[in-house]
Amino acid sequence: MFTLTAFLLGFAGSFHCVGMCGPIALALPVQHLQGARKLAGIFLYNTGRISVYTLFGLLFGWLGQQLFLGGFQQWLSVTAGLILLFTVLVNYILSSRKFQFTMPGMMTTQVKAALGKLLVQQRFSTLFIIGVLNGLLPCGLVYMGITGAAATGTVEKGMLFMAAFGAGTLPAMAGAAWFGHLLSIGIRNKMRRLVPVMISIMAILLIMRGMNLGIPYISPVINQQHEKIFEHCFKP
């Protein structure tokens, strides 16, 4: 359930991604290529980007696992869900037509500078690194995904969650790089409206997960999960 939600969040948010990161996709050194080589270049770029998301899933899945073992997973899940719902509500109250999150990053300037240098070089061999740097740019939707990854409570599930999120962004981002443009602005705006819906669904799932309702996969009993993870991590 969480993996599907992550994929749909990535898919709905990818139209936001095209607006934010589309210029990078359009500037990739693949526009002069054709056929399999162009496809391979786009694959390399997106593999680099999704690899970073998966690494985030590993790191924050590990963090969530430590909180789980410490007995704080239930509170983390509920708190994360409430924060996401609050964020959606604030954006709704502000009547923002473009649902987007912006957070300043200390590394943003350096990452953008490195990206600029690589894009100017227009070399096929740099495509994977360009994707990696793109994945490091501050993005509110990625922050939402990271929250979900931490709430999964395990390293493996955290990685899978963020990999599914990245896979959801793939169709739109690959399309932007392949065609040089994507769907009409009207359709993109309609798809962007799905973002708060998907975030709300994820928030509700997080809250339910922390409520120990005994619902398999959606709200399993935390204590039972705690015992399984403890046995997995510390079995002789």
Rank of each mutant, 00 (worst) to 15 (best):
I187A: 15
A164K: 03
M162N: 14
L119C: 11
F124D: 09
A164D: 02
M211V: 06
E227C: 01
I218Y: 10
I207G: 08
G148H: 00
P138W: 03
V197E: 00
M198Q: 09
A203C: 04
M144T: 08
A151V: 04
T154P: 10
G140E: 09
I204L: 15
P196L: 11
P171I: 02
H226G: 01
Q224V: 01
A149P: 09
N212W: 04
L133Q: 05
I204E: 12
M159H: 09
L136I: 11
A163T: 12
Q122K: 11
G148E: 01
A151W: 01
E156V: 14
P220T: 06
G214S: 10
Y217V: 14
Q122Y: 01
I129C: 00
I215A: 12
L160G: 09
G214F: 14
V120F: 14
K228M: 13
I146D: 13
V221N: 10
L206F: 09
T147R: 07
L160C: 08
G140F: 07
I130A: 10
F124W: 13
A203H: 00
S200D: 13
F124V: 03
G186V: 10
V195T: 12
F165M: 08
Y143W: 13
R188D: 03
L127V: 02
F230C: 06
F165V: 03
S184L: 02
L119T: 09
L170V: 01
I187C: 12
A163D: 03
E231L: 07
S219H: 05
I204R: 13
C139L: 07
L182V: 10
E156T: 14
F230H: 13
A167D: 04
I207H: 12
C233K: 05
A164N: 05
F179E: 00
I218K: 06
F234R: 08
E156K: 09
V221G: 04
A149G: 04
L133A: 02
C233P: 00
R188S: 14
K235P: 01
F230S: 12
L136V: 05
L213Y: 01
L137H: 00
E227L: 14
V120I: 15
G135F: 07
M162C: 14
I222M: 10
T152M: 15
M173Y: 08
Q122C: 04
A203D: 02
L183C: 13
G158L: 03
I146E: 13
R188N: 08
I129A: 00
L194Q: 09
L133S: 05
H226F: 06
I218H: 06
L182S: 14
E231H: 03
I229L: 02
V195P: 03
V142Q: 05
M198L: 06
L127A: 03
Q121E: 14
I222H: 12
I187P: 12
G145T: 01
A163C: 11
L133W: 10
L137E: 00
V142E: 03
L137A: 00
L182T: 12
M208A: 14
F165W: 07
M191P: 11
A163G: 09
G186M: 06
L119R: 08
A172S: 15
A172F: 12
L133G: 06
L127M: 07
G148V: 06
M191T: 07
R192N: 08
R193F: 14
F124Y: 14
A164C: 13
M173P: 08
S219K: 04
L183G: 11
M173R: 07
A163R: 01
G158S: 02
N189E: 15
L213D: 02
A203R: 03
M162R: 12
I222D: 13
L206W: 04
Y143G: 15
G135P: 08
L127T: 02
